[in-house]
Design a binder for these strands. Sequence first.
DNA 1: CTTGTCTATGCAACGAGTTGCATAGAAGGA
DNA 2: TCCTTCTATGCAACTCGTTGCATAGACAAG
Lengths: 190, 190
Amino acid sequence: MALEHAILVSLLEKPGSGYELARRFDRSIGYFWAATHQQIYRVLKRMEGDGLIDAREVAQQDRPDKREYSVAAPGREALSQWLHEPIEPESVRHELAVKIRGAAFDDPAALIHEVERHRKAHADRLAHYLAGERRDFTGPEAPRALDAGRELQHVVLRGGIAYERMTLDWLDDVIATLERLAPPHAGAAR
Amino acid sequence: MALEHAILVSLLEKPGSGYELARRFDRSIGYFWAATHQQIYRVLKRMEGDGLIDAREVAQQDRPDKREYSVAAPGREALSQWLHEPIEPESVRHELAVKIRGAAFDDPAALIHEVERHRKAHADRLAHYLAGERRDFTGPEAPRALDAGRELQHVVLRGGIAYERMTLDWLDDVIATLERLAPPHAGAAR
DNA sequence: CTTGTCTATGCAACGAGTTGCATAGAAGGA
DNA sequence: TCCTTCTATGCAACTCGTTGCATAGACAAG
């Protein structure tokens, strides 16, 4: 039930509606825990029923009303408890890796375009992270004082940056390997 | 349905029973696509029903009989088709990152032990990968000839190694950040 | 002699996650 | 005027994945 905890963290950082949470999950916290609006609305309902969060109807002009959620005391308690529980180190799920191994039983060259497409997606994400870092953490208005929330957001973002850089290097290695196995000018390897 | 495809790849590399596949998913291919025996048995049933794989009862002495599966022609076809379809670049799911951001609303120092535990798990996995690489890809009996299956398994393993190295570096950064936020000797940051 | 581990397979129930669809008002462009 | 986009919420159906439990023979340790 990590989505529940991700929502608690996000609502502690700033209260918001289901829709707003879905937007945040498309950026920021969602880089490390993706979720669709369906999931979010469903879980918000359950969490409100369990008393973890409070809802407040907010009338708006020029747009539909919204339900703004904020963390209640039991929600803070639940998060704190979760933080003190150990979790299992993640097992990665890398569909592309399965494809690469599968390419041995098909045409390796046919995968090159697909890998290049992934490379581009990761390059874009890296550029996006770096822009966010410049904007939020190294700008002139970046406070010098030790702010736990900021520091922790920054270290998580550094993790995202390191991940994308590593992935780009690896995908270059993959492309080089695929090209070696299926040289464009010579015949295929026996 | 990537599990289906991971199973096809694994069975093409070597036919085997559900139990044997579950073992392989605990190592090798499972490093990039984890699965429990329950999932595997269920999907094998479905795939046999769909004609993607063939089953063969194998009597054994001193242990229970097993059903050995191998890939049928339609299975090869299905894999090939999947390889030619584009897939979405993965979105990572990193529960630890959620915890780290959550630590801003709790005691950051309390997370240090948890992060160190994860660091150790990743260090172990890296050592395991490196041992596998030495054994299978750089030993004296490693063939020099260009073998697509070997090369592709190796490049995927290199990806795993790069991932673990990156993760170790990042976790060191996380630990340093947490310690900075909660120095063991001085008072807590305001 | 009992307990635990390994091979081998499976059911049942539940929870998590995805996909398609629906509603509804306002704004902006073709 | 119509079409699309944005905000905002939700239902229904489905697939995927996890957890607990069960069976069953062989073997090893205590």
